[in-house]
Amino acid sequence: MKKIIYFLVMIFFVLLLIGCTPEDKEEKTTLMISAAASLTDVLNELKPVFEDEHPSIELTFNFGGSGKLAQMIIQGAPSDVFLSASESDMDKLQVEDMILKETRVNFAENELALIANKNQPVKVSSFDEISSATVEHLAIGEPESVPVGRYTKQVLEHLELWDSLQGSLVLSSDVRQVLTHVELGNADVGIVYASDALRSGKVTIVATADSDWHDPIMYPGAVVSDTSHSKEAKLFLAFLTSEKGQELLHKHGFK
């Protein structure tokens, strides 16, 4: 008997909760945006600005590694816009006709930054001063599997440092780990994207790499072919490349 009463009380509360949910007066269009993890901060700041301008559109984000996101879209995960951190992942979708080719646009560019701990003096002030004499441990992304590691290797090879630094290079499985090693002072310096360096309050940018030392680090965006909201999706991409959108991107370390 007691159980039944508990059950009825539970049902009562559940119904009460359902009753309390406000009903949407206007039909809102929800855009699902699959975006590279490195864009997390800037997109969260951009969301209210965009939604103020377009009250009928609501943005939802799905953040992840670009490669995994591209794979998910190919497998049919619902998505209206894809914002990638690498051109090759966008190329994969284009080959499969999974994106609307004419909407593809490079909306941001990133730089490589040499970072050090704010509270720990280092012996280097530029990329070419890095050597096994000045730096004990240099934290970087693993060059074969982590995109930032691939660009890092290009830079170190361009400066003819790659071979001499073997044994001092600590390879990490993602950018976050590189930041952690420098933040805790275990690695003297590290190399990450400029936008990631700005996200951490405990590191300082010592130098940025010349853009011709590595392939351009472009962020392409495009509307996904399967979308049923292509008009709204195009509006969002246009906003990214607009003055306001670019301003926000610059603020977060993108070019």
Binding site: G167, V170, H181
Partner: peptide, 17 residues
């Protein structure tokens, strides 16, 4: 231990990367 080839690369790390 980080992943430093030749210094701290155990089998699971070799597999992962």
């Amino acid at each position: 231990a980080g992943y430093i080839p030749g210094k701290t690369d155990t089998i699971p790390m070799a597999i992962y990367f």
